[in-house]
Lab assay of single mutants.
Amino acid sequence: HNLTITQGKLFFHYNPKLCLSEIHKMEEVSGTKGRQERNDIALKTNGDQASCENELLKFSYIRTSFDKILLRWEPYWPPDFRDLLGFMLFYKEAPYQNVTEFDGQDACGSNSWTVVDIDPPLRSNDPKSQNHPGWLMRGLKPWTQYAIFVKTLVTFSDERRTYGAKSDIIYVQTDATNPSVPLDPISVSNSSSQIILKWKPPSDPNGNITHYLVFWERQAEDSELFELDYCLKGLKLPSRTWSPPFESEDSQKHNQSEYEDSAGECCSCPKTDSQILKELEESSFRKTFEDYLHNVVFVPRKTSSGTGAEDPRPSRKRRSLGDVGNVTVAVPTVAAFPNTSSTSVPTSPEEHRPFEKVVNKESLVISGLRHFTGYRIELQACNQDTPEERCSVAAYVSARTMPEAKADDIVGPVTHEIFENNVVHLMWQEPKEPNGLIVLYEVSYRRYGDEELHLCVSRKHFALERGCRLRGLSPGNYSVRIRATSLAGNGSWTEPTYFYVTDYLDVPSNIA
């Protein structure tokens, strides 16, 4: 807008934040220059609390790290170098490059900038070799853009010569660093050979998330399962459950009422301010606690030095998902009996873990797994792929695949051998790939016309006998059925096997 004052003059007093240069501009645009008398524009009460600059400061050096910015700028000295009290560095987070010096300023003089007072450097006698002032900004957020400017702080001049310097606002972004852990990993099994893994992005990506790394490792069953005799009275049979499938998407929606109208769909109840505040506090606490764990609990591995020492970490090797089922080394339970199943799973520490690289999504279907087997899954978020990966501390989750139908069934015939004193040795093959492992066998036998009897055969007993022995049988026709019990439950009964026990007292003698 054009402003013209045809008559009258300007009068400025007691404006401590208004620089004289701005008042002189007002004289020019209003056409009143030359009308004012000496005392109409006070030299001592206008701009006496402001830094009124008329020179431009330029930054000469900028260096960044993930949490620091090192700045240096060209030296500046007023005509009387004693008038320079120091520099004021202003900075704040700036997602967009549209910041002005006066953003967030209120009537009390406060604003949204963080201000650092910096002492002037030592003055050199040689004007050509003056030290460049600077400042190291610490405690910054990774991968965050900051708006920065600097200006001088000078003393009051009796001659009211307006001098000083100020830089333009520059924008500097800190470097990326390792992201925080992925949030809320959930693993479920939808079949006997697959596990579905879902997660949420890290709360602090500290860069642009480029991919996720998912490692999985087959877990050995508890050692007590191999040692305890679950045929003993009072000892509860062990059981394991597989990871249940995901709930429906509708039930997972946030901010939804727990109660549904019987007449149909209901609208979600909005969260109160107290609920939102509580969630923010919980989120802040979780982030602080995660940072504490990362800094205190997890110790970084030592990389190899120039002395030739090897990095103890196993090298990563990509495998196809079809090879995942046989990740671990199978060892027989008892070496003397080769027909026992290889369900003991000690994992070799030198073995390469299978892994998958996930790009542009937060889910993965891990296939080719062994049925009813526990897996430990390790999830890392990465925001750099080359020249070397920059990934987060791992988040861990466990899951067990679903049982395989008929995996616990005894394959092959049940054979028998009759000894003296009416002892019958029953023999059968253990299931080759049971659900988890076989903890015991149930032997059901009966003599024709009598009630059915049951015998429990422990895992250890089966390994020693290759089956079991029935003792003290009365003469007669017998039928026997056997079924295995694994961590997933009972298998199917075998087809009945028949044998006849004679009275050993009636056996004919070869003595003449």
Rank of each mutant, 00 (worst) to 15 (best):
D408E: 01
N208V: 09
F462I: 03
R376P: 01
W242M: 04
D409K: 09
T303L: 04
D250T: 09
S283V: 05
E258R: 10
I438H: 02
K460C: 09
P238A: 07
A330M: 11
E404Y: 07
C391K: 02
H461C: 10
R318F: 14
E281P: 04
G234F: 14
C382F: 00
V423G: 15
E265H: 10
S392G: 01
Y441V: 03
S342G: 04
K278V: 11
R353I: 15
R353H: 10
S479L: 03
T340N: 10
V297Y: 12
Y375G: 01
L453F: 07
C269A: 08
N360W: 14
S268L: 11
P300L: 05
F355S: 10
E350W: 03
D408I: 01
A395K: 14
C269F: 12
I438W: 02
F285Q: 11
D261L: 09
V345M: 10
S479C: 03
H371G: 12
E433P: 02
V358F: 04
R400I: 07
E465F: 10
F372R: 04
I418V: 10
F337S: 06
L426A: 01
Q275W: 11
K406E: 14
A336G: 05
S239Y: 13
P244S: 13
R318T: 08
R483Q: 04
A263N: 15
V329A: 03
Q384R: 06
F226I: 06
V359D: 01
A336L: 12
F355Q: 07
H454F: 00
Y445C: 04
E442L: 12
D311K: 15
R301L: 10
E389V: 08
P332G: 09
R483M: 14
E247S: 12
D250H: 08
A463C: 11
G472K: 14
S243Y: 06
S284W: 15
V507H: 01
F298W: 04
R466I: 09
Y448I: 14
N435P: 01
E430L: 03
P475Q: 11
Y375M: 06
S239D: 10
V424Q: 02
G308F: 05
Y478L: 00
V439W: 06
P403G: 03
R447Q: 14
V334H: 11
G491Q: 14
F419K: 08
Y478F: 05
T340R: 07
Y448T: 15
A263M: 11
E282A: 13
R319K: 13
D408A: 02
Y230N: 12
I377W: 04
D291L: 10
R400C: 06
T502C: 08
V299Y: 13
T307F: 08
P270T: 05
Q380F: 15
P300W: 06
S342L: 15
K271P: 05
A336I: 08
P338N: 05
F499P: 01
Q219S: 05
V393G: 03
C269N: 10
F215P: 01
K278F: 08
Y498R: 11
P332M: 11
V334T: 10
L455S: 11
V393W: 12
L235G: 07
N383A: 09
R471D: 06
P431R: 01
H461I: 12
N421R: 13
S283G: 07
F246N: 14
E388T: 11
L505F: 12
S257C: 05
S251M: 15
Y498D: 07
N208A: 05
Y259H: 07
R376S: 06
T307N: 11
S248C: 15
Y292L: 06
G207E: 02
A484S: 04
Q275V: 08
C391V: 02
T373K: 11
K287R: 07
E227H: 09
K460N: 15
K317M: 07
H294V: 08
D261T: 07
Q275G: 11
A395R: 05
G325Q: 15
P312A: 15
E290I: 15
C266L: 07
I482W: 00
D323F: 14
T328S: 15
R471M: 06
P434I: 04
S315A: 07
K460W: 14
E404R: 05
S392N: 01
L277K: 14
R286T: 11
V501C: 12
Q380K: 07
V457L: 14
H294G: 05
H425E: 13
H211I: 03
K253V: 01
R446A: 07
S444C: 15
I482H: 01
E350V: 13
A395S: 12
L440D: 05
H211E: 02
T340Y: 12
L487H: 00
T241D: 06
E362I: 12
N255F: 02
E351M: 13
N208Y: 12
V457C: 13
L473P: 02
N339Y: 10
D229S: 08
D506F: 13
R353Y: 12
S223N: 12
N206L: 09
L235Y: 07
R459T: 05
Q219D: 09
G467D: 01
L426S: 02
E249K: 14
V214A: 06
E420K: 13
T333L: 06
C456M: 02
S251Q: 14
L293A: 14
N510A: 15
E356C: 11
F226A: 11
I209N: 09
S284D: 14
V299W: 02
N208E: 09
R319Y: 03
T288A: 04
E224M: 15
N435I: 00
I276N: 13
A394K: 12
S486T: 11
H454E: 09
V331N: 10
F372T: 02
L232F: 13
S243W: 08
G325N: 10
H454G: 15
F372K: 01
E362G: 03
Y448P: 13
V414R: 01
E433K: 15
R316L: 14
S509W: 07
Y445R: 02
P314V: 04
T307Q: 07
L321E: 10
L487Q: 09
D323V: 06
I482P: 00
I482G: 00
N422R: 13
L455A: 12
S474M: 07
R466G: 15
D506Q: 15
A394H: 15
S509R: 06
T307H: 12
I276R: 05
E388K: 08
G234A: 07
S509N: 15
E495C: 05
E224H: 14
P403I: 12
N435L: 00
V443T: 02
Y445K: 01
A336T: 08
R390W: 06
C267V: 12
Q380L: 12
R471T: 09
V331F: 10
V443S: 00
C231F: 03
C266M: 05
R466P: 05
R319D: 04
S283P: 08
S243R: 11
V480F: 07
T241M: 09
E217F: 06
E417H: 03
V327H: 08
G368H: 04
E465N: 09
Q219Y: 15
S363G: 14
N339R: 12
H211S: 04
W216E: 02
F289K: 04
N339G: 07
E217D: 13
